[in-house]
């Protein structure tokens, strides 16, 4: 699967842009947190698309955002 680029994203209807990002992010997040992947992806999709694109290219930034999201999620559920 070819990498998702800003121009590919911009070519998609606004409503589908988060969907496209989610489809790319979910498998990466699932590898880190199999049970919480859906919720974490849902949380991260609230972030700006440009930052989400960056996270797709940068495992480090993805990991750090995922850990942040897990902490928020656990605090929320507590």
């Amino acid at each position: 699967q070819e990498p998702l680029t800003a121009s590919m994203l911009a070519a998609a209807p606004l409503k589908e842009q988060k969907q496209l990002l989610g489809e790319r992010l979910y498998p990466l997040i699932q590898a880190l947190h199999p049970t919480l992947a859906g919720k974490i992806t849902g949380m991260l999709l609230e972030i700006d698309n440009s930052e989400l694109l960056h996270m797709l290219e940068s495992p480090e930034s993805l990991h750090s955002k995922v850990e942040e999201a897990v902490a928020v999620l656990q605090a929320h559920q507590a």
Binding site: K18, G22, T41, G42, L45
Partner: peptide, 22 residues
């Protein structure tokens, strides 16, 4: 407008409704 269901869960292959439900 309870936040019990927050965050919305992303399911691959299912159209994302996201924040509409919050």
């Amino acid at each position: 407008n309870s936040n019990i269901n927050w965050p919305p869960e992303f399911c691959p292959g299912v159209p994302w409704k996201g924040l509409q439900n919050i």
